[in-house]
Design a binder for these strands. Structure first.
Lengths: 188, 188
DNA sequence: TATGGAGTATACCGAACGGTATACAAAATG
DNA sequence: CATTTTGTATACCGTTCGGTATACTCCATA
């Protein structure tokens, strides 16, 4: 593996395990088998490494969502497709997803939160547009797209959180369960 | 305000704004109008301050939950009472709740996560026991108490998250909405 | 009034922090 | 073959990190 890729991967692993602020550049370099100037050559700064990691992985997620997060007049199957995309992405990039969740809930003035903010907003906007389209077919959904989007992403992340804690496996059953719970609650 | 209380409060504010790792002891001392040894006199270490802050606030939350999180054979009203307790606590200690959420999702080997872990487990256990009791009245809930507990706390935190981002107000309407959504989904 | 604990500040510790000036080797380019 | 570009390491920068040795003031108590 080239050094640039190696640094990025080791950086992500360490950030995901102990947090952006708690991991030093020196430590990343040592674990990647290089020295600090090499890291600065490729990423410019510690923050640059962070941004590079976020961009690299989120571009994959958004590419996936671009084909799956399309409303085709069936709320259930649309939400299931989105869930599947999130679950499969999280499973394939588990360390990244864990780190991304940590950034999401990081304090508002922290470096990690500021770096992830645009990607949060993009996810939120994407989910909102789905519910806005669905509201054209389901009158009782009108005017609630923001709350639906937040709740839906919340449930998805709740289930991915259970996977992270090894409490469940993210199989096709959970896709149905999660969407069913979102649409019809825990009863039935 | 006494110095000990002042340090605790300033520490929480700074942690909640920028994160535990990003805030230095020196900075806390300056903002609290004292010097570092005073902080070390009362709390022993930076980590000691963190633990003190967590213990102080969580003991209030758990005291509140002890009287409200009691299953009385009506799932809806029980969950509403728990939600009300969480919402009201979050509203009264907004900076703490924000920080606590950040610790919750912090990387598993981070100081913040390790410090909050016992409090997470206690919340989880408490919620599980409610759903376990409810399952005695509702057969279709049997064996799902863990997932219900995680989901329920997830929805509660989703709504508190919206409050933190100033997207909603946590009034009595939201209590009903959140519980209704948990039990019956977004439809109806 | 003497004694001791509680609380606070000055001034310092070694280590780690993010970042860089410089030199140099290899590889691509004219 | 000469020259530039790309990539890497050594050795260093000033700053800040968490933490502390020491001394001092104040106040309660004997």
């Amino acid at each position: 593996m080239e050094n640039q890729e190696k640094i990025s991967q080791i950086g992500l692993d360490l950030f995901a395990e102990r947090g952006y602020d708690a991991v030093g550049v020196q430590e990343i370099a040592e674990n990647a088998g290089i020295t600090k100037p090499t890291m600065y050559y490729y990423f410019g700064s510690k923050e640059g490494l962070l941004e590079s990691i976020l961009e690299k992985h989120f571009s994959v997620l958004f590419d996936d969502l671009e084909t799956s997060a399309v409303y085709h007049r069936d709320v259930k199957s649309t939400l299931e497709a989105i869930s599947r995309t999130y679950f499969s992405f999280a499973e394939q990039h588990l360390a990244f997803y864990r780190f991304q969740l940590a950034c999401w809930f990081a304090p508002p003035q922290s470096t990690a939160f500021k770096a992830i903010l645009p990607y949060l907003q993009k996810q939120q906007t994407l989910a909102e547009s789905i519910f806005q389209q669905a509201a054209q077919d389901h009158g009782n959904m009108i005017g609630r797209h923001q709350r639906y989007a937040v709740s839906f992403l919340g449930i998805i992340n709740t289930y991915i959180g259970m996977k992270i804690r090894s409490q469940i496996e993210l199989d096709e059953t959970i896709v149905s369960t999660a969407v069913h719970q979102f649409m019809h609650g825990i009863f039935s």
